[in-house]
Amino acid sequence: MTEILFVLAASVVFGIGVWGLLIAEHLLRKLLALNVMSSSVFIIMLVVAGGGPDGPDPVAQALILTGIVIAVAATAFALALMVSIYRKTGRASITEKGDDDR
């Protein structure tokens, strides 16, 4: 029951994340959407892996823990990149035409 609920919720959250990533203009919001998505992926990973009486599968937990740390590392780096872009261009978005020209 718990699992079913969470899988359903995570699926919807995944969809919301995809939607947010595609429509958001502000880079911060795109990153938030990505983080929301990754949380939902982690939930599904854990539920799918199943487990025994002592709790969920320990290997899956370890994978997710690794995933969480990688997500925060990537987010931190992306934020630094965003600030640099903002300093250079005065905008926190990357949707612009004519980027191919110099």
């Binding site: 990505l34 990754s38 992926v41 990973m45 799918v48 892996a49 290997v59 899956a60 994978l63 995933g67």
Partner: peptide, 12 residues
């Protein structure tokens, strides 16, 4: 993320 989700499913 897509890849990771797939890995999770396959592991499951």
């Amino acid at each position: 993320l897509l890849y990771l989700l797939a890995v999770g499913l396959i592991y499951g």
